[in-house]
């Protein structure tokens, strides 16, 4: 089959199935979060009530935006401490059949912030670093709680738009509990069972050794005393050749973690190879289901938004903007990868698609998934805040690698992470109506609320915080020895590796250009700080807007009111997103993937 046709069919089937779930799931989420009596709440109600009683919480007690933010910060701050302690103490804790030692302090800090902030950036290899207890009681628990935090914040922000003359935006503890109990847990149980039925493993066995048929030779990178990779005079990594005929097969409770990894747009793999590992993602069906699970909640939240503000057309308009960005950039990723590498083609390597191969640039990709399913996964995982990978992003063509970079740098809002996607695009909607208001000389309004100075200041904090962290972090890293030491490919691609790392960390994605050796004190601290501030400062600004909007009176719709559910508004929204993204990041992108592309063209 023609690869373009194959990709188009895959993309269409994917979008049809996802969009078919938007309305029912969006309605279900709205019902659960607003306390509607549905089947899930009847079943889970006693557990929910018990949790409130044990924790001394009154779910009906409403919170101002600042109380909501402080509760959210307290909960997540404690989450960091617990996860840090679990890693540092794992050698003395149960469920550690490999007797893995305590994780280093800098890596524990990085991983704790990473999983609490829904980033799931992994500087370590899970199977050789973390015990089953830490994977389950630490990482998997935070997979649920960080995603639930995202949904809670999103619902609070939606209430800010939906309510009027109100000083409160809901109760964080109730929102957190409901999103975990009624949204994430049931979906995760179902998906975990389906994944297990397809071959994703779920056990507590010790790792198994298998003797390979052939002796394998590999290059072992050498590290200095500080853990940084050693380099020769030319700046290339120093490696030592080694051989083995033993392959260790890691085991573990993977299926249960895999489900929430995707549904919560977390992305942290049980194994280092993430969803490229056959125990995490064994078949094309699991690959499809994992992509579906990543985007379904973020897309559905647009309908939840529409329902909660009383006009579902508003939600469809946001979804339309998300879809335009998503489809356009997915197509670029596919075209770039399917075209292959001209330098390899010049050496006589066949990169043409046929019945026997996918063709194109297959470096870093699984042959069982091919170009189409890999390119779609690349877009899915970076259009959300997931960061799970089934292909190695560092091996993408320059323009193929540009796509995940841009998707992250635009703020991951097409459709974005669980919860984060909807509130991120709402911040751009606020900006969009503000720009429109400036153009026509009217006070900007959105959903019957005047957008005034305070909202614009908060939207500015929201929109500028992340780019500042990305660009400042990248600049510091390329100017200091510890930052440059991690680069695997000196030159523009090395710059891209660092830019990608900070784009991923600050936008809470977690995927990486894996050539960067990031498990060093410098990167563990720098990306740890980027993940925390990239997650929680925008959330605080968003909640502040929610609190301000909730307190406002609703303005009646008049002939002068700009409709925010039609193509004009969608175009305005897309224009705002692209304008901010382009102005902010094009200079940096020009130094990395763009110049790398031109170098490739020149070399050809």
């Amino acid at each position: 089959m023609n690869p373009t046709v194959q990709f188009s069919l895959l993309l269409c089937a994917f979008l049809v199935i996802v969009l078919a779930c938007v309305k029912p799931l969006g309605r279900y989420i709205a019902g659960c979060m607003d306390g509607e009596a549905n089947l899930a709440r009847r079943i889970g109600g006693p557990v929910e009530g018990l949790l409130y009683r044990v924790c001394g919480i009154d779910p009906a007690e409403e919170m101002s935006w600042s109380r909501y933010a402080l509760a959210m910060l307290l909960f997540n701050g404690l989450g960091v401490l617990v996860l840090y302690a679990l890693q540092r103490l794992q050698v003395w804790l149960p469920l550690n059949p490999q007797h893995l030692p305590a994780v280093s302090a800098d890596s524990s800090f990085n991983t704790a912030v990473s999983f609490v902030s829904n980033t799931n950036w992994q500087g370590y290899a899970g199977e050789s670093t973390l015990s089953y207890l830490v994977q389950m009681a630490g990482l998997a628990v935070q997979n649920f709680l960080s995603a639930a935090t995202g949904i809670a914040v999103a619902v609070a922000v939606i209430r800010g738009f939906a309510r009027h003359s109100s000083r409160t935006i809901g109760n964080f503890w109730a929102d957190l509990t409901r999103s975990t109990l009624y949204v994430l847990l049931p979906l995760s149980v179902v998906l975990a069972l389906v994944l297990a039925s397809q071959g994703v493993i779920q056990n507590f066995d010790a790792y198994r050794d298998a003797k390979t048929l052939e002796v394998q030779t590999y290059q072992n990178p050498q590290l200095d005393a500080a853990g940084n990779p050693l380099r020769d005079a030319a700046g290339n990594a120093v490696t030592v050749s080694a051989t083995t005929q033993t392959q260790t097969l890691p085991m573990g409770p993977v299926a249960s973690q895999e489900a929430i990894k995707e549904l919560g747009t977390n992305g942290g793999g049980f194994f280092n190879a993430n969803s490229a590992h056959p125990y995490e993602n064994p078949t094309p069906l699991t690959n499809f289901l994992e992509m579906f699970a990543i985007v379904v909640i973020p897309f559905a939240l647009t309908y939840t938004f529409g329902l909660m503000v009383g006009d579902t057309r508003q939600g469809w308009a946001l979804l339309a903007a998300m879809l335009v960005l998503f489809v356009a950039l997915t197509a670029v990723a596919f075209r770039s990868e399917q075209a292959g590498n001209p330098l390899i083609a010049a050496q006589g390597v066949d990169q043409v698609a046929s019945d026997l191969q996918s063709g194109g640039n297959m470096e870093g990709k699984e042959t069982r998934f091919g170009i189409a399913a890999s390119a779609l996964f690349v877009a899915v995982t970076t259009a959300t805040s997931c960061g799970a990978v089934n292909t190695m992003h560092d091996s993408l063509m320059p323009l193929g690698g540009l796509v995940p970079l841009i998707l992250m740098q635009l703020g991951e809002l097409a459709p974005g992470g669980v919860g984060t996607g909807i509130y991120s695009i709402l911040m751009f909607a606020v900006l969009g109506v503000f720009i429109a208001g400036l153009m026509i000389g009217r006070t900007p309004e959105y959903l019957g609320k005047k957008i005034e100075a305070f909202e614009m200041k908060m939207a500015s904090v929201f929109i500028l915080t992340t780019p500042f962290i990305v660009l400042f972090g990248t600049a510091v890293a390329v100017m200091c020895t510890a930052g440059v030491a991690g680069i695997a490919n000196p030159g523009p691609h090395g710059f891209s590796e660092i830019l990608y790392a900070f784009s991923s960390a600050a936008n809470n994605n977690g995927s990486a250009f894996g050539g960067l050796s990031a498990n060093t004190p410098f990167y563990n601290i720098a990306t740890g700080l980027a993940m925390w501030f990239g997650r929680f400062w925008p959330i605080v600004a968003t909640l502040a807007i929610a609190g301000s909007l909730a307190a406002k009176k609703r303005i009646p719709v008049t002939e002068g009111t700009m409709p925010t559910h039609g193509p004009l508004f969608v175009s305005l929204l897309l224009g705002s997103i692209l304008l901010i993204g382009v102005l902010t990041y094009v200079p940096a992108l020009a130094l990395g993937p763009i110049v790398e592309h031109f170098m490739l063209v020149a070399a050809r």
Binding site: S64, W65, S66, A69, L70, L73, G77, V80, L81, Y84, R88, A105, D106, S108, F109, A112, V113, R167, F454, K457, M458, V461, I525, G528, L529, W532, F533, F536, W537, V540, A541, A544, G547, S548, A551
Partner: peptide
């Protein structure tokens, strides 16, 4: 070593709580 990283956690936490306080002051009592 742990004290350094736990101190860092406390630092970023307090800075974010400070942001809540500052934005709340900017807006006025909520």
């Amino acid at each position: 070593m742990d004290a350094v990283y736990l101190g860092m956690v406390a630092g970023v936490y307090l800075l974010t709580v400070g942001l809540v306080w500052a934005l709340n002051r900017l807006r006025g009592p909520s």
